[in-house]
Amino acid sequence: MQNIILQKTAKLILIIMTAASLWLLIRGHNNPGGGFIAGIVAATGLILYAIVFGSQKVEKLLKYNTRNWIGSGLAIILVSIIIPIALGEPPMTAMWTTISLPFSISLHTGTPHIFETGVYISVIGIILSIIITIMEVLKWNS
């Protein structure tokens, strides 16, 4: 769609949505949020971008094929399952550790974060692969 206001807004909204989705992803373990919701929010921003600019632009933006996004998300989930097994705990146990960063910030993180990140990436991949396929079938490339 050749409409400069829409194009600028879509770009702006994409940035805002991505930032919001990262925020939801990080706070997700103890507060409302989490990998699935965050993935949907990020994908919504990308879908708006796709509607305005066409599906090829989104594929360019994503850099890798959506299959690879799904696959790498699942691979990250696999890592988060294997870490507890390697440390001798039952699979999928939540293992936590505190990392101290400079400027006296300490980061409390663990395998659930890895798991949620995997869910985040694969949800983005799945939703966009559906949308891109539909757009290509309908020849809906503005």
Partner: peptide, 20 residues
């Protein structure tokens, strides 16, 4: 662990099939 591998092995193939 020994049981969980029966879910992880198909999952492992599915991941590789998506990436390759």
């Amino acid at each position: 662990m020994s049981l969980f591998a029966h879910i992880l092995i198909p999952l492992g193939f599915i991941i590789l099939a998506l990436l390759i």
